[in-house]
Computed example of a mutant assay.
Amino acid sequence: MSRTPQEIFESYVHAGAMTRNADALAENFTEDGVFEAPLMPADAPFPRRLVGREEIRAAMAAYYERQAKGDGRRPNIAKSGYVLHTTADPEVFIAEIDTVFDGDGDSGGEDVVVSLVQIFRVRDGKIARLRDYFAPALMS
């Protein structure tokens, strides 16, 4: 069963940013799916390139575990927003995202807005390749 770009994107965001469920996140990818964060330095805690559903599952589970020991902040969905852009290629869509985290002591009480772009290539309703472009310092 094929899913729409909206359904694919919402499932990916729910599994990752919202619930940090590596199993659910990995299931959004094809078996040979590729996840890339091209702007991420090679030694960063956030993975730069993962190939295959099982590598995505394992690496993201480890990342989420490390992240849980940190501040544990999650996006404020009511304040965040996104726009999906379809392309001439029916297997490619782009997500333009502004994620808002509620302000805390570190931000002087100001909300923190993280803007990013994700390029999705899909096959049979699953993510075959995802390129996630964001500022690397945001993931430290």
Rank of each mutant, 00 (worst) to 15 (best):
M1E: 06
M1T: 11
M1H: 14
R3H: 11
P5A: 07
Q6R: 15
E7Y: 08
I8P: 05
F9I: 05
S11G: 15
S11F: 03
Y12L: 13
V13G: 02
H14V: 05
A15E: 01
A15T: 01
M18I: 05
M18F: 08
M18E: 08
R20A: 11
N21C: 04
A22M: 02
A22D: 01
D23V: 12
A24C: 06
A24P: 03
A24L: 09
E27N: 14
E27L: 13
E27D: 15
N28D: 14
F29K: 00
F29P: 00
E31A: 14
E31P: 00
G33A: 04
G33C: 05
V34E: 12
E36R: 14
E36L: 09
E36F: 04
P38T: 08
P38E: 09
L39R: 06
M40T: 15
M40F: 11
P41E: 11
P41F: 13
P41M: 08
A42C: 02
A42R: 13
D43W: 03
D43F: 05
A44E: 09
F46T: 03
F46Q: 04
P47K: 10
V51Q: 15
V51P: 02
G52E: 14
E55Y: 10
I56G: 02
R57W: 06
A58F: 02
A59F: 05
Y63C: 07
E65G: 02
R66Y: 00
R66I: 00
Q67H: 09
A68S: 15
K69C: 00
G70P: 02
R73N: 13
R73H: 14
R74Y: 12
A78Y: 01
S80Y: 00
G81Y: 07
G81S: 11
L84N: 04
H85R: 13
T86K: 09
T86W: 01
T86Q: 09
T87G: 11
T87S: 12
T87V: 13
A88S: 13
P90Y: 06
V92F: 03
I94C: 07
A95F: 07
A95W: 12
E96A: 06
E96Y: 09
D98T: 07
T99M: 14
V100D: 01
F101N: 00
D102M: 07
G103Y: 08
D104Q: 05
D106W: 10
D106K: 15
S107W: 05
E110F: 13
D111T: 07
D111N: 15
D111W: 02
V112F: 07
V112P: 05
V113R: 01
V113A: 04
V114G: 00
V117A: 12
V117N: 08
Q118C: 11
Q118A: 14
F120L: 06
R121E: 15
R121W: 02
V122I: 15
V122A: 08
V122M: 12
R123L: 05
R123H: 12
D124F: 13
K126S: 13
A128D: 15
R129I: 05
R129N: 11
L130E: 11
D132A: 01
F134G: 12
P136L: 01
P136T: 06
A137D: 09
A137I: 12
S140L: 15
S140E: 12
